[in-house]
Design a protein around this nucleic acid. Structure first.
Lengths: 219, 219
DNA sequence: TCCTGTGAAATGCTTCACAGCG
DNA sequence: CGCTGTGAAGCATTTCACAGGA
């Protein structure tokens, strides 16, 4: 297959059901594991076993990207990795700003997992720019006043928000005005995304609470 | 349980649909916000507006806890807060161990949000116990050898795993043998939970990837 | 035979429409 | 009236069953 590469048509991404999109990231992660192990081809069954999904579900999901499987063989590891990166948007570099250089913020700043997916934290902002969060940071902590200019100058579209809860909504509103289009919010409060801004919120305490529920329910 | 209050029947928690359970944590967080503002009663409409959900969905969800609303009035803030805490399991203290005292691990150790929900990190374990992660920690970093004894002695049921990806599966297996029943995993790999262990995984890079997708798709 | 892809059935969740209470 | 609770309808997602290629 792939003489020179397959077509990479944009496809109708907006019609992929969101449960599928969430799983695509898992497929990608898993394909990369198998590829690193030198496995060139993978069946929907193998992939499903690894991720605790059925083989049919894997096939239905991957079919959303177009017919990429090979009957009798499975899916080509390299092909799927690049296809999934393309669909998910990680076939390009993304510059990101981080707001908040406290405990969580500095952990995010030095977290290696982002760089592995081509996300680069190019600016860190905090009310107190004196905070030198941790040892080796790629970026320096800047005062909030510099935010708008920095975002505009670098054409940044994504932001990580790791500020205290009470500050979060105002920060997100300000980011929106500065031109940010996507926010990954770690503040443990409900934040209403301004028009035109996509937001995903991760509340660590809520995740633990959900786990406690499952453990108690034996579910 | 407690004299006056409502009955707090266990109900059939295991039949609450999981999308509902995820939202219950959001309702709880929101009820607490309104309660802190001195608001004693809340309608499904108000709650829905705050969380970008329809009023019907809020009512259907809360109906899973039994008929707690008051027609013409709404839901009693105090009543719902304690009911939700009871259902979700945060009406009791949970002792938690943390495995991994690197960047993310030490941020988790000093994250205030857990304590606010009555989760207490009582032990931190790392291959390198010399790591004194950050300033004021409630717990000291212990060597991995002490894990089993510690978990057994304190009767701990929940663990946070913030170790490097390649170590995660082995750590989770070991935690399971030590008696842990629930794992909140931050390692960016697929981990298969041992029998009898509930697991929730949070992959920060995947969240950012999902956000990038949404931004690019304009969806 | 081992595999993918896909209509069709089954399931689960959300939304609608409305009965009923304070 | 305003607001809850709920059967029924409407949608979305998952699972089933099977056709067909290598």
């Amino acid at each position: 297959m792939s003489g020179i590469e397959r077509k990479m048509t944009p496809l109708a991404f907006d019609r992929i059901p969101s449960p599928v999109i969430r799983r695509l990231s898992l497929y990608l992660r898993q394909f990369e594991v198998f590829r690193a192990a030198g496995i060139m081809t993978l069946s929907s069954r193998q992939l499903g076993d690894a991720l605790a999904l059925t083989d049919v579900q894997v096939r239905k999901d991957l079919a959303c990207l177009g017919a990429l499987g090979h009957a009798g063989i499975g899916y080509d590891t390299n092909e799927l990795v690049s296809r999934l990166h393309h669909v998910l948007g990680t076939d390009q570099d993304w510059d990101v700003v981080l707001i908040g250089a406290g405990n969580l913020g500095s952990a995010l700043a030095s977290y290696g997992g982002f760089a592995a997916k081509r996300f680069r934290i190019v600016g860190i902002f905090d009310l107190d720019p004196g905070l030198a969060p941790r040892s080796s940071l790629d970026a320096i902590v800047l005062p909030m006043e510099r935010l708008e200019e920095f975002v505009a100058r670098h054409g940044i579209r994504l932001a990580l928000v790791a500020v205290p809860g009470p500050a979060a909504q105002a920060v997100v509103d300000r980011l929106s005005k500065a031109g940010i289009e996507g926010v990954l919010n770690f503040a443990p409060v409900t934040v209403t995304p301004p028009a035109g801004v996509k937001m995903i919120s991760v509340d660590l305490a809520i995740q633990l609470e959900q786990l406690a529920f499952q453990v108690r329910a034996g579910k």
